[in-house]
Simulated scan of single mutants.
Amino acid sequence: MSKLMLVSAFAPVSHKLERIEPDLKGRTVTFIPTASMKDFTGFFNRMAKWKLRALGLNVQEIDVAVASYHDIKTTIASSSMIYVTGGNTFYLLQSLRYSSADELIAQAVREGKTYIGESAGAVVAGPNIEYIKRMDSEDPAPYLDSNYAGLGLVDFNIVPHIDGPALGESAAEIMRHSNSDDHMVPIRDDQAVLVNGPHIELVER
């Protein structure tokens, strides 16, 4: 049974994680900061690990762009949750694909590990990330070769930062150019999409 928490910003809604993971204290989360390494707000995205620790979680950080396959596999295997930060979605997808972390994460989620995706981490969880071109630059991902297939952990596409002070305009542009077939789910920075098996709900701070 898949369990996911997809957010624009983790800090405002971090307490909602307990709705799908009620017993957090002492558990371990794999923290993947890769997307934040190619984004000017990277430092703020990486601050999410302090929120995770405040919830009682042990944090194992690993950058899939530079780590070995063995280290990524071992780190994910020793965790009960996976957290993927915000940043540049295209660089994130390229790094996940070339390290084979995409397959490891998808398998781990199928086996019951909880996936927490923030902004880029939420976008990449869907079936395709091409729409996020209106928000992110493709420049940091020259080897993606126009293959925009996401992890496919959910069958809808998150549009983060609706009405946000920095990226709200880009998010609105994405929604203006979308249609019902795109299965877009727009979320504000104070909202989260929680997936618990077949049950999907939108929650607010």
Rank of each mutant, 00 (worst) to 15 (best):
105 I>C: 07
112 G>E: 12
161 H>V: 00
145 D>N: 15
40 F>G: 06
104 L>A: 14
3 K>M: 12
9 A>P: 00
89 T>E: 01
95 S>I: 08
1 M>S: 14
4 L>N: 11
22 P>A: 08
178 S>D: 04
187 I>D: 00
189 D>H: 01
94 Q>S: 06
204 E>Q: 13
98 Y>P: 00
67 A>T: 05
132 I>S: 15
161 H>T: 00
199 H>E: 15
69 Y>D: 11
14 S>M: 14
92 L>H: 12
49 K>D: 01
6 L>M: 11
141 A>K: 11
182 D>W: 05
31 F>I: 08
74 T>F: 01
95 S>F: 13
35 A>K: 10
168 G>P: 00
67 A>F: 06
44 F>I: 12
124 V>E: 09
184 M>I: 07
39 D>C: 07
6 L>W: 11
201 E>N: 03
31 F>C: 01
143 Y>C: 02
55 L>N: 10
88 N>V: 07
123 V>R: 04
172 A>V: 03
8 S>P: 06
62 I>N: 01
31 F>V: 10
195 V>W: 10
155 D>F: 08
82 I>C: 12
178 S>E: 02
159 V>N: 03
91 Y>N: 11
191 Q>E: 15
47 M>G: 13
132 I>T: 10
80 S>Y: 03
181 D>H: 09
186 P>Y: 10
81 M>V: 07
183 H>P: 00
100 S>M: 10
176 R>K: 15
186 P>W: 03
3 K>V: 07
129 I>M: 10
52 L>G: 06
187 I>C: 02
94 Q>E: 15
95 S>M: 13
204 E>P: 00
164 G>I: 00
172 A>T: 14
173 E>T: 13
158 I>Y: 06
201 E>I: 04
23 D>E: 14
153 L>M: 12
158 I>N: 03
177 H>W: 06
14 S>P: 00
193 V>H: 08
69 Y>A: 13
143 Y>I: 02
188 R>L: 00
162 I>M: 14
60 Q>F: 13
5 M>V: 07
48 A>E: 11
164 G>Q: 03
169 E>N: 04
60 Q>S: 15
172 A>Y: 04
33 P>H: 13
85 T>W: 05
19 R>H: 07
156 F>T: 03
175 M>W: 08
167 L>M: 14
75 T>D: 02
91 Y>Q: 05
47 M>C: 13
64 V>I: 15
150 G>R: 08
134 R>K: 14
86 G>F: 00
16 K>P: 03
17 L>P: 13
141 A>S: 15
97 R>H: 08
148 Y>I: 07
183 H>V: 08
136 D>T: 09
118 E>D: 10
71 D>L: 06
68 S>F: 08
86 G>N: 02
148 Y>C: 10
9 A>V: 06
197 G>W: 09
88 N>P: 08
133 K>F: 03
203 V>Q: 08
164 G>S: 15
153 L>I: 09
199 H>V: 13
196 N>I: 01
169 E>I: 07
193 V>P: 04
77 A>F: 01
72 I>C: 03
36 S>V: 06
198 P>D: 12
26 G>F: 11
127 P>N: 12
156 F>P: 06
126 G>E: 05
136 D>Q: 05
100 S>R: 15
1 M>I: 11
124 V>I: 15
191 Q>G: 01
75 T>Q: 02
205 R>Y: 05
115 Y>P: 04
155 D>Q: 09
54 A>D: 15
107 Q>A: 14
130 E>R: 14
168 G>D: 00
38 K>R: 14
115 Y>R: 01
30 T>E: 00
66 V>H: 12
